[in-house]
Design a protein around this nucleic acid. Structure first.
Lengths: 341, 341
DNA sequence: CAACTTCTGGCAACCGGTTGTCCCCCACCG
DNA sequence: CGGTGGGGGACAACCGGTTGCCAGAAGTTG
């Protein structure tokens, strides 16, 4: 806070178009156009300007550009929890896609809290050209209100009138239930994640429908925190139940469930089969390896971001959500049901 | 890219201080000061201005503020690989700390590439007030060149003249080697990560020194990719060796090593003890659970960011790096050495 | 050779705040 | 009652680009 001593190297102000203009013997507007409107300027002049710019080390000030063009070349990406690898993957996909388009990504971790998310969004809104909401916990109304102010794309959530990128939860879940049914499991449990999570609702509905159609008993427990600890806790709650097949909201929880069950003296998959969602490293490492419904997270992040940029650049989005496929990866955590006692 | 149809809702321009000024019957400068210099303005007037602002829904344009104050209230955070949970943790700590200070975080994933990192840094430099480099792969010279342009704080790397936040690699590594030595392991191997990684060098040196002092045989293999796959690969390379104790550059690799060894028919820890670095979930989940040198990643991210903001706000950094403690968490992947055959 | 286009550079306004400076007005003082 | 001081509002310059408009130059056409 204290003012610095007098020995500062007098931070030489960064060169501006005016400096370049002077060096090249032209007007500032010509310098600006040299970079912003190539073609508008005579190629000889342009060459002189570029040489002068290079000589004095000119680089355009993005803030000034943003002010006059109203384009900040930044996108906000809101995720619920960076410690969850699925968001890290989504973010990564989005970041790389943004970078490729010359955009920067402002991340915000909303800590699974709709209020924090809302406030965060409103706060950074004026700074960005668009917002990518990954697994938003906000209400539909809140999302629409944001979408009224800036282009928005939503990942992992279906929402009319707002462009979405979602996995085929219906089909993925269905496959998981079929998988368990085919292995002879007749008593299924869905371990739920946060109520505010859209995929959680979609998975539960699809689970419920599939159980009904396939004539299986399907119930639900939860909600639990969408973390390893949450899954572990769920496993204990599961203890007494007669479930032989368990479908878990996400991979972190599923791993927690497996560990919790093992802790309780049950074997996976011999006693209980566990199927999760999301294909993340931890699911491959855990023993037994997690049977899971996999969605292309990085691609979803990248697609979401690209679609967002398209809207930012004036594309009219056709109302339909972008649906990416989800497929079942059978691994070791699921197997044949024990003969009913 | 196509221009939109004529039915646009004519996006009503956001209100500016001029609109507020008119509504409140004062000059624009008074509006500006009402928010930027409370106290400079008469409290009655201020109240009127605030009321007018609220009435028409005024919110300051951060871009304009940034242009005139040269403060963007944004910090760049560069990480090598978002898919690595340690960066997700660091980022999370940094993001939360930034948010608390009213700053935004621009993330960039540099994909473990020094060139990408350098270019990325230069590109976003004019947009941010400071740069937080997490596990930079750049040369010292490149980092210093960036530090000349903007305040920089480096995490996971020691570097004279640039503020750093590092873990006590020396001590942590020493503890790991002692741990293995005490368990009777006499042939130790260090599985190296990227050459460009500073912690990799620090760990190898500390390992080497500790082996020397404790009279243990210590060699090194690598470099390998700092990923699960890299560790797995290393395990194969390790196959022939007579190592009984292995220290691995990071947790992801360590887990890969464990799996690779198991694949090769070796038992961990009965045949080989494995110790890693970083305490991340996956190390707790893997079986056997990973014995590891733990560093407070989130805290390092937060501290790094706070120190960066301090420098941005004029603090003179005392030259010493901030060293946070590293401690050994003995778990299941390390145990007593077999009796030498 | 006059009239008209096209090309290209410069001028100045503008984006939306911030801030140095001036000045008016009121209070306080002797 | 005149002089002094300071509180507080307004004016205008400025941050660093962008861009509409204009005008002079050069090229085209009949």
């Amino acid at each position: 806070m204290e003012a610095e001593g007098g020995s500062e190297p007098t931070t030489t102000r960064a060169p501006t178009i005016y400096d370049v203009a002077e060096a090249a013997g032209v007007a500032a507007s010509t310098v600006s156009r040299t970079f912003a409107r190539p073609g508008r300027v005579n190629s000889q002049t342009a060459e002189r300007v570029r040489a002068a710019a290079a000589a004095i080390g000119y680089r355009a000030n993005p803030v000034a550009q943003a002010l006059s063009t109203a384009r900040t070349r930044m996108i906000a990406v809101l995720v619920s929890d960076l410690a969850n690898p699925i968001y890290a993957e989504l973010l990564r996909g989005a970041q790389v896609a943004a970078s490729a388009a010359g955009y920067g990504v402002l991340v915000e971790d909303t800590r699974e809290d709709a209020v924090v998310e809302r406030e965060t969004a409103e706060r950074i809104l004026p700074m960005v050209e668009g917002v990518l909401l990954a697994s938003s916990r906000m209400s539909d109304a809140a999302i629409r209100s944001i979408a009224k102010q800036r282009p928005v794309v939503v990942i992992n959530r279906g929402l009319a009138d707002v462009p979405c990128v979602v996995a085929d939860e219906q089909r993925g879940t269905r496959r998981a239930v079929e998988h368990l049914g085919e292995a002879g499991h007749r008593d299924l449990v869905y371990v739920a994640g946060p109520d505010a999570s859209w995929p959680n609702g979609a998975r539960w509905r699809a689970f419920s429908d599939a159980c009904h159609e396939l004539d299986l008993a399907g119930r639900r427990i939860g909600p639990f925190e969408p973390t390893f600890a949450g899954g572990f806790e769920a496993a204990l709650a599961l203890g007494g139940a007669r479930a032989s097949g368990v479908l878990v909201f996400n991979a972190l929880m599923a791993v927690g469930v497996i560990r919790g069950l093992q802790q309780a003296g049950l074997r996976v998959p011999e006693d209980v089969s566990v199927v999760g969602f999301d294909d993340v490293l931890i699911g491959q490492i855990v023993s037994p390896a997690l049977t899971t419904v996999s969605t292309p997270l990085q691609a979803m992040g990248a697609t979401g971001l690209r679609n967002l940029l398209a809207v930012v650049n004036g594309a009219r989005s056709r109302g339909e959500p972008v649906v990416v496929p989800a497929r079942l990866l059978p691994r070791e955590s699921s197997g044949t049901a024990r003969q009913p006692a």
